[in-house]
Amino acid sequence: MIRARDLTKHFRVHKRPPGFVSAMKSLVRRKYEVVKAVDGVSFTIERGERVGFLGPNGAGKTTTLKVLAGLLHPTSGEALVEGFTPFRRQTRFLEAITLVMGQKSQLIWDLPPSETYAMNRAVFDVPHDQFKTTLAELTELLDLGPLIDKPTRQLSLGERMKCELAAALLHRPHTLFLDEPTIGLDVAMQLAIRDFVRSYNTRHEATVLLTSHYMDDVVALCPRIIVIDAGKLIHDGDLRGLIKTMDPDKRVSFTLTDGITDDELAKLGTLLARDGKRITLRISESELPEAVGHLLGPLHAADLAIEDPPLEEILRVMFGKSKEARAGEPPP
């Protein structure tokens, strides 16, 4: 279980305008400002949940993950993970969690991943039998095969990421903090990682807190999402509920062989895109049955698909509102 209560993490940052004069001035007198990377965030995640942690760049996602993983001391508030206070970094806490960062590697660069695995086995004191079983399971799930005996520096980004995941999970942690685990990977590799995370979650009833810029990762993996912006929590709830609240209208895409004017389409819904014969409309839920009936009937529409609005769109609106709200607040 993960619990954050009024969690804050402030950084004191040296501020200096550009230019030579400013550089000289800063030698004598430095100006600092406090950046509220995480500002009073509270949430609880139960064991076995898969939660997406979303926010624009600099929103405080990674900082929150680092506080929860025990790398950073919170400025105030409380964090509790698997019953432990993370920053104390007790052995049993470190055995219970893992943090995978897409842009950081724990693999020893010039040695094959198998050497990092051997080191982690020794450091986490994993019994040899359990190590063999877990490594075999991870090798199968992640299709590691010959990769683990190739020097890490010779692996592709996707291959390295798969090996990173195995290194992070050899001690069978119950809580997974995944920070951009699919960054820079091709679609096939993204799908493989997604499948793996889901499978690990099911097999070990592991708790997963995931950040990703790829909304497909979040949609595919996380029934619940937490959204933060400028260090503050702005949404915590189920993904479908968020979409329904923010934009209940559906996106209806179809192909029309016969010509149709934009004015005729406007009678069915709002025209979002028209690419040759492929058309996308935005239609409210109440008008959906009638519109779809008309499209499939008199208009002979083919390849019709009804979808929720893309999560990116929802979040863009959400962050826009959050920014407007902040602009309206008095300065601190």
Partner: peptide
């Protein structure tokens, strides 16, 4: 470079 984070995740 931030790679210290990965080292700190090990119970050693």
């Amino acid at each position: 470079t931030g790679t210290m984070s990965m080292r700190l995740l090990r119970p050693l």
